[in-house]
Design a binder for these strands. Structure first.
Lengths: 341, 341
DNA sequence: AAGCTTTATGTAATCGATTGCAGTGCAGCA
DNA sequence: TGCTGCACTGCAATCGATTACATAAAGCTT
């Protein structure tokens, strides 16, 4: 009644060869004679054989899976990166285990346990501010799984990473605004301790300095990349006696929150204030106004990170730390306008 | 130099017991004497032992992972469902393998390969329109992994599913519009062959009929839930000689696309036309105007589906087909307004 | 034609944990 | 005292595939 899954011995028997030959015919085809290979393949086809991954992984001493640590799986910004990773993985035979680290920050122990227990072949971290305990897993000697940071990275730079040129992005943003004639340019940042925040802020500061402008600390609002942070910044902006005529938001989400909150108070973008975002998530082109923003190649970030990781896993060596930086691009839409005095 | 991962025999030796006892102390604590258990636990702690999942899974004949089939991982609508699934799974010791089926529609073979029993103990499908070849995996007898549909479902109803009350949602949407005095109400639908489209359309039709209104076929635009589909519908709407004064969009994304395209032609929402969306994704409350929409309990959808699946896996029987329907809720915001004649 | 490669295949150990079955020791009971 | 039952623990088979090593056959070389 219950048709047991066929095993390699079943295929071997049917093909009249040993299990070793079946195994080789399937995973190293070039090492068996063509005629044998065909016989085996036919037998495998006929029995409907699928290799048992637990058995293979046990023997091969791998798990066939990598873990992706995502700060917030519900955030559309990350999901496109995941899509990139997925694409790269589908070229190999590695699976993707997705873990949301929102819990991790409260309970590092839990994620740590997970990483240990699952013994992944590798880790991609989209979250640069992982607790030290978790990072130490990856740096603990030769048996440890390789880890790659995508998008974010660690300040100390002990790990390979693939990231966008955030500094340049910050510069592009303010350069665009300055080019439109704006002289007082404000900014909403990400979290204080975040590497992206630093890089984008640094780029912005450079860009302003090169154009003889300065950033008034009163015009800098601390955010956290979220919609709500943008809305809060808007409230702070409204209370300013001297308002900047343009604002660089370090994420699209904050830009939306900001514009939205302003709209509720009758203030228009770009009429009253020009806004540049960062990321270029899908909705940016359909927001009202369509958002001028710095595009990050998100899919490519994921793709590159995964490819790099696969390579590390393959060589099984502990390769040099590589930092890949992908270029960003300014997408000009309708949320910015020339300064009207 | 290279500190090999400790195995169960290492723990056994240190604790002065057999591997059988160690195994039992760890997974069935109540079956070993308390003193022994403590010794074993201490030894496990000391060696830093972690069970090797490949070995365990091989022996237990399971994989410890489920596969989630997502139509488009980049779509924010799905990611919240994933978050729900993740939450449910973190209570058990099952992992989540995420697969994007965009490729699947081109290459069912590829996804099929994924689903085989050796890889997953169960499947959650967020995509109701999977190719038959894939569905047949799940219905192929006793050894097959159980499958649960979340959000979408199959028309023939051969599988358990957890879904929102889409019909009621459609009714709520048009009831709200009708209640505001709108008499000509249009609609943007999802794909023709999609179960959600049918359910929402049916609910809308019922709601209209109960209020003595009818749906003019000329006011129905065929979409596919995407931003672009909404924009295309807007172009069609613009060419209408007799335009409906209100529109029910079967997804928030289409609503955004529609409103955005209209805005580019100087038509205002809700001034000129009222819009109701469906889903209540995060950006809805910050769109301009904030979107009136039907909220689906997305996180709960994922949570429930995962719990149901875990139960199916646990009992290992092939239980009756269960359909869980979660209620939806109308969220009134700023994109709808009383009909002004 | 002997000796040396090369190629193809088989044999059997191995990966690490789980678990059915058997054995041991001790308490309870007649 | 002898027997039964229970609570623990150990032995060893087992899950299914991979692969080091051995072997055999065929091809080459001189």
């Amino acid at each position: 009644m219950e048709p047991k899954a066929p095993r390699i011995t079943d295929v071997a028997r049917l093909a009249g060869v040993s299990t070793a030959t079946v195994s080789r015919a399937l995973s190293k085809p070039e090492t068996v004679a063509e005629s044998t290979r065909n016989t085996v393949l036919a037998a495998a086809e006929k029995t409907g054989y699928r290799v048992n991954l637990s058995a293979r992984n046990l023997r091969r001493q791998r798990t066939g899976a990598i873990v992706v640590l995502v700060p917030n799986i519900g955030n559309p910004f990350f999901s496109e990166i995941l899509a990139g990773i997925e694409t790269a993985l589908s070229e190999s035979d590695i699976n993707m285990l997705v873990v949301d680290t929102r819990q991790a920050h409260m309970k590092p122990q839990l994620v740590l346990e997970y990483l240990h227990a699952t013994r992944a072949d590798g880790i991609i971290a989209l979250d640069g501010s992982l607790p030290d305990a978790i990072l130490s897993v990856a740096s603990s000697g030769a048996g440890a799984p390789p880890i790659i940071f995508a998008c974010e990275w660690t300040p100390k730079g002990e790990f390979s990473s693939v990231r966008a040129n955030n500094t340049h992005g910050g510069e592009l943003a303010v350069a665009h605004l300055a080019g439109l004639g704006h002289r007082t340019i404000g900014m909403i940042t990400g979290p204080d301790d975040n590497v992206l925040t630093h890089a984008r802020s640094k780029g912005a500061a450079q860009g302003l300095a090169e154009r003889g402008l300065t950033l008034d600390p009163a015009h800098v609002f601390a955010g956290d990349f979220s919609l709500d942070a943008g809305a809060l910044a808007a409230q702070a902006w409204l209370e300013l006696s001297q308002r900047p005529s343009a604002l660089f938001c370090q994420s699209d989400q904050m830009a939306f929150g900001f514009i939205s909150e302003l709209a509720r108070h009758g203030i228009s973008v770009p009429g009253d204030v020009s806004i540049v975002g960062f990321d270029d998530i899908a909705i940016a082109q359909r927001f009202i106004p369509a958002l001028t923003t710095v595009r990050q190649p998100r899919k490519k970030l994921g793709l590159s990170a995964a490819r790099l990781l696969i390579e590390h896993i393959g060589t099984h060596s502990s390769p040099a730390i590589e930092t890949t930086i992908l270029e960003v691009e300014l997408i000009v839409r309708d949320s910015t306008r020339a300064f009207a005095g």
